[in-house]
Design a protein around this nucleic acid. Structure first.
Lengths: 232, 232
DNA sequence: CTCAGCAATATTTTCGAAATTGTTGATGTG
DNA sequence: CACATCAACAATTTCGAAAATATTGCTGAG
């Protein structure tokens, strides 16, 4: 009747995306219980449709499902953050290495294009660009463009999933960050090194990833409570 | 009424496991369409329950779901095999490296125990151990024991998923293999190197993985048809 | 003969009620 | 008072019919 859904897009996949967004933006608190009745009302879908979306998110490790006790938003913890970071470094380096080896002119052009768009929006938004959802999209796109020529669908998909999983921690980092300048310079430096096929690019991207993690642990580490701890 | 299901185990998770097994054992042919009506009869569950299981498998890349056109068993292809192999090598090496660095006495004991069980069953079964489901289980357990001390849940989970995804190709390899001896010796050599913390273990495990892949490409490569090709 | 348009059929997707299972709290016993 | 038992309740899980969508096959115009 009032369906404004893309063709070939199912209602379940729509709810899946909305749920994902709400979890990543922490609108649904980490560690909190996901009750069907409440979600059903929130997203205006039936039990089964919700169930499918939650099952998918469970396979993505964004929610956990234990037996017959329903679903829970995946908790955040220092252990998880550190583990995630190490895994991301491994996959980011490998994808970038392959990408720099195989990337062609079109790939280079794509990087320049995505950087430009991110940079422009950054300037327009001023100091608090980090909280803008559209910027987050462009930022994600820029990092993707760097590695997308690796030619390995499997490695790229894993990288993408980990990048998403890290979003909640990036979000926390930005809340505790005091100096904003470095990130902007870093992106430019990384891009230049990548386009010049300089091996140091691998170390720069690793540093780029680890910096956010260190920032969270330094400023927000004490807020976590144990391995199964929840965010405040 | 006649439920013989484990406690905390849902009907959907039961179907999920059975579907997974049937896909990995190629009882459900790669690339074939999964029709709800047929599956509903096969597993004796309802639409919704099936749907959840399929959604989970889709997130695991064991089935693909395109828009509103249902589900398909993930196809097999040389490109996928090679990609999968490279990804597995990356993750197996990293997990093994960490495991050898951090593993304690209990870990070593666990390796010896799982190897022993696999070896015994191997001798009991004779030349065709590779087709036995129980042996496959023990084989999987042995390889898991080598890396399980890495201390990284994220890396281990990804490794596990890839190991599973590779199962159909291992299966194909065993059908085309003529000489069976090497694998048995390899496992012993790998275990010894790992227990002695010799860095060469990383190369041995990589070779072990790549061997199966090379075998499939040499003997079965011509059976694939293009990038979206299906098995015969 | 080719192909667009449309009707008939097959398949998937969604829904909410019903069944199952887990949880809570009151009651009684050791 | 501690603890097991059980009933009442709350939440999840399952079901199959109904709606929505895709696919197939037919008809007729160009």
């Amino acid at each position: 009747m009032e369906q404004v859904r893309q063709k070939g897009e199912t209602r379940a996949s729509d709810v899946l995306q909305r749920l994902r967004d709400d979890i990543l933006s922490c609108e649904l608190e980490p560690g909190s219980k996901l009750k069907f009745e409440a979600l059903r009302e929130r997203y205006e879908v039936s039990f089964s449709t919700l169930r499918e979306a939650l099952a998918r998110l469970a396979a993505e490790s964004l929610v956990t499902s234990e037996g017959q006790r329903g679903f829970v938003v995946a908790p955040v913890s220092i252990e998880d953050l550190q583990d995630l970071t190490n895994a991301r470094v491994l996959l980011e380096r490998e994808n970038l290495r392959l990408s720099m080896e195989k990337g062609d002119d079109a790939w280079e052009a794509h990087i320049l294009a995505t950087y430009h768009r991110m940079d422009r929006l950054q300037n327009r938004l001023g100091d608090h660009y980090y909280f803008d959802p559209e910027w987050a999209q462009l930022h994600s796109g820029f990092h993707h463009s760097l590695v997308c020529a690796s030619g390995s669908p499997v490695l790229l998909e894993m990288r993408e999933k980990l990048f998403e999983r890290a979003h909640r921690y990036r979000r926390m980092s930005s809340q505790f960050r005091t100096q904003w300048r470095p990130k902007e310079i870093e992106h430019k430096a990384i891009m230049d090194a990548v386009l010049d096929r300089e091996p140091v690019a691998l170390d720069l991207i690793e540093q780029h990833i680890r910096e956010t993690t260190d920032n969270v642990i330094t400023f927000a580490g004490h807020l976590f409570r144990g391995p199964q701890g929840e965010a405040v």
